[in-house]
Design a protein around this nucleic acid. Structure first.
Lengths: 350, 350
DNA sequence: TTTAGCACTTAAAGACATAGAGTGCTAATA
DNA sequence: TATTAGCACTCTATGTCTTTAAGTGCTAAA
């Protein structure tokens, strides 16, 4: 257990290191502390904190920097989230209040807001896919054996893909098939739809349509796209700023952000799911799997949308983030998201 | 005018500098030249080339590097495009032959191919917008005063946007309006459509619809999106490799690539339009406006799609590119694009 | 016109000295 | 017993100097 003074010292070393990026020496720290002690006393405490593994040195005569355990301790015991400033609040309200808000827009906006306010990179993952329903399916013939398949989901997102129709598929068959799909599957969750097009739907089509196979491929394809594509990144360009002028690290970060699946998995970690009350979780680089994230820190916040699953909003930045401001911010945005999405659904369900 | 040997020296300095990135000295060059001359002779010629402004030195006793004028001269007089290798050819054919090809897919693929084969960043701009026609317009009500507007163009690209319907707009009015739009405007070029919705269409709507204004805003909005969004970048991540480990330069490049308009303007330069036979144009960094591109080189190739305007495909990379391979490559891809798009239209027009 | 030879230039790398920031430890002090 | 002053020690960063290697320009001979 830390003495009060040791806690104060750790806290301030983290603060100063975050602000300046430089190791903190005992003399310098003496001026910054609210209590009046000599640099020698500070040195003694620093040595103890280092023994406990909470501080590191770059070399034997440098100032101290917080170790990863130091950050961990700080986050777990010392951090007090600060309130959200007036100006931040204004930005949040203003951006969220833009018109034409659909589910996916709201989710996307949240990533934009968070990255703008922090200058880091935000990732927003909408509430669980399991609840999304099929709202409609259309095929638009474009001539020359090409058709466009359009799928609309209950969250209002549209997926479209263009297909070369196999010569064997007859035009009238398509219309019939589309009608059957719409009659049978609209209103059902996408997961159910995906299951049924592998089970009973083929038989059903068989009765009316001579060539169901090519058609089902197309539908399955678009469906798959709709199921996966619910992922928004804000402030990608900010990576360029906080990746410490290290092009190699930057490169692997950018590659990570190309693979939505990997990122989504990172956000949907088991220990997050377990956490029912939606606390905000900070994971430091060494606690994360991909080597890529070693010098960074990932903060995830979950939010419940009443009866419609839970979403995740996350922020990736350097380990040396001003956590207290950022956690306050994230907490507000999470609440806002939960509220607005819940509102949306309650209107929509009427 | 250069002597034959001087030309040979310039050519080889460019080649070696492209391969090694290092300044080239007279002794080293002596081993690489196909003719047998002493290093002193080479030094003399180098000095003359430097007087002409075709070579530069980093400092008084360093080897030579090609100056910008040197590159210019090389490109204008010395360069012989090489044929496309078997393996490159295979990649090109294979990628282009993927199924489900629409205009925009073909254009997009071309950027992918070019960037993959070169490890640089490719930009592909489809044939002129002026020829794109409106193929259909739909509005899908989503409940809760929200609608999705979908616009399909003759190139098969879909634009969709979601709108909060002003409370004043009645539901039946929408359907009428959509029907009128489709009757009147389908099949017309987008530019004509854009003009007409500002001129005679409002009056026409007025007769049948009580609230034409909100509706026209929506249509205009989606239309605008369809007109601008014909721009594909391939190999964005490659920027990270050839931006010479210089994070500042990297940053401004990435910002440039966020602004499609700026880039499009860069590709549609007047001197390119003038060039009727579709020659390939190399512009070196200092010949380009934005400071950002100073150490880079932009190669643009235009291609004519019979009776359907002309497109541009371009490549951005370091000034020290292996031009002879790359220009060969670009030439092939340009031909391929022209051929495939012409084919597409001729089928489509039937 | 070409080449051999040589004096000269410069960057890069290593050796060395110095200043500055910071630490750890000891002994005195409150 | 906890704190502090004082001092020797450590390490980095910086500047200066030297050496080495690569390369040039010029001159005079072939």
């Amino acid at each position: 257990m830390l003495t009060q003074r040791q806690a104060l010292i750790l806290k301030n070393i983290i603060r100063i290191f975050t602000e300046t990026g430089q190791p903190v020496g005992s003399k310098h720290l003496m001026d910054e502390l609210p209590i009046k002690v000599s640099s020698a006393t500070i040195r003694n405490d620093m040595a103890k904190l280092e023994d406990m593994g909470l501080l590191d040195k770059m070399h034997s005569s440098s100032g101290r920097i917080p170790s990863t355990s130091g950050y961990r301790y700080y986050l777990d015991h010392l951090l007090e989230p600060s309130g959200v400033s007036q100006s931040d609040l204004a930005v949040i309200q203003q951006t969220f209040n833009k018109q034409y808000q659909m589910i996916d827009d709201i989710v996307e906006q949240s990533a934009m807001i968070l990255s703008t306010l922090t200058s880091y990179t935000a990732i927003s993952l909408g509430p669980d896919v399991s609840d999304i329903r099929l709202d409609g399916f259309r095929m638009v013939p474009l001539g020359n054996h090409q058709i466009m398949a359009i799928l609309v989901t209950s969250t209002g997102s549209i997926q479209n893909q263009i297909f070369q129709l196999p010569a064997s598929v007859a035009g009238e068959d398509l219309e019939k098939a589309v009608r059957i799909i719409n009659d049978q599957l609209v209103g059902q969750p996408l997961s159910t739809v995906a299951k049924r097009i592998r089970t009973d739907v083929p038989q059903m089509l068989m009765k009316y349509v001579t060539t169901p196979n090519g058609f089902l491929d197309i539908f399955g394809n678009v469906l798959k796209q709709a199921e996966s594509d619910r992922f928004y990144v804000g402030g990608r360009l900010n990576l360029l700023d906080f990746a410490n002028n290290d092009v190699a690290s930057l490169k692997s970060l950018y590659h990570l952000f190309e693979k939505n699946d990997d990122l989504a998995q990172l956000l949907r970690m088991p220990d997050i799911e377990r956490d029912k009350d939606g606390k905000i979780i900070v994971r430091l680089g060494n606690e994360l799997h991909p080597q890529t994230l070693h010098n960074y820190s990932l903060i995830t916040a979950t939010y419940d949308v009443h009866d419609h699953g839970r979403g995740v909003i996350a922020l990736l930045g350097p380990t040396t983030m001003p956590y207290s401001r950022i956690i306050g911010l994230l907490d507000l945005i999470r609440e806002e998201l939960a509220r607005r999405l819940t509102d949306y659904y309650s209107n929509f369900d009427d």
